[in-house]
């Protein structure tokens, strides 16, 4: 067996399960549309236009690309928290797989690859829809799903690592207490210059900000060298959380 392919065995398992339960996947794919319509369009009527990078945008134009990144985060957080916790601590699924020739890192990568396949498909669907709605202005927008994938990987890593510390289901309240502000405050719904001067570096230090800023740049065609900074931040987060998560899994499962 080629070691590279081993994580795919876990993906197969999920494909088989969800082939029988496609509605779950479908409902997740609809989530960004609900946000776009519920907040983008509904709020748009009372918010009016937003000026961004010297360009006047309608509120949906402003929110839509950022929602691709935010949804990628939300999807990854969901998949790698509840589902991951269930397989790790309740159902013994990971324990059972460790009795096969697969290693811990294969399990981790397999779950990650699956989460990204799901998330990637959602982003592509959403981006195509945004293009049809006329909310994207630049050909750079074809790279948006890739950025969404990276945001998803980064947050999937963070979520799985955090989940290894969860003791019971109620702990997830605290978990989402941390992640919800990220969603609300990371410039998805309003621009960075709304914040007072002193507050901006704090917002810029949060991971979702980098995804949001980059997707918006791609949608409007205002990409510049800052893109490397955003990509570097997200890639580093993917790498660091992977090391941390696999180490914690070993503590829990191979003690």
């Amino acid at each position: 067996m080629i070691a590279f392919l081993l994580p795919w065995r876990l993906v197969e398992r999920n494909v088989i399960f969800y082939k029988r339960n496609p509605v779950v996947l479908l409902s997740a794919a609809l989530e960004p549309f609900i946000f776009l319509f519920g907040l983008g369009v509904g709020l748009g009527k009372i918010v009016g236009d937003v000026t961004w990078a010297g360009e006047v945008l309608t509120y949906p134009e402003f929110v839509a690309p950022a929602l691709v990144a935010s949804s990628a985060m939300n999807g990854a957080l969901f998949e790698m928290s509840y589902n991951f916790y269930f397989k790790l601590k309740e159902s013994g699924t990971f324990e059972a797989i460790l009795f096969t020739p697969l290693r811990l890192s294969h399990i981790y990568d397999g779950e990650l690859v699956w989460a990204m396949l799901r998330g990637g498909i959602y982003s592509i669907v959403f981006v195509v829809a945004l293009w049809v709605f006329g909310l994207l202005a630049s050909p750079w927008a074809v790279f948006i799903p890739l950025v969404a994938l990276l945001v998803g990987l980064a947050f999937a890593g963070l979520a799985s690592w955090a989940t290894t510390y969860v003791r019971h289901w109620q702990d997830f309240d605290l978990f989402f207490l941390v992640t919800q502000p990220l969603f609300l405050l990371s410039t998805t719904f309003f621009a960075l210059d709304v914040y007072p001067e002193w507050c901006r570096p704090i917002v810029q230090a949060t991971p979702l900000y980098h995804g949001v800023d980059l997707t918006r740049d791609l949608a409007r065609g205002t990409v510049d060298v800052s893109a490397f900074g955003h990509l570097g931040y997200l890639l580093a987060m993917v790498a660091i959380t992977r090391v941390l998560a696999v180490r914690r899994l070993a503590v829990l499962l191979q003690n």
Binding site: L43, I46, V47, G48, V50, Y59, Q170, D171, D173, L174, F176, L177, Q180, P181, L184, L185, F189, F190, V194
Partner: peptide
Amino acid sequence: ATIVSGMVGPLMYLLGIGIGIGSQVD
């Protein structure tokens, strides 16, 4: 946890939506 999330969660919404988006609302 319930009390903390009952306090901090809405506070975030008040900040993010009430103040953040609110700054854009006419």
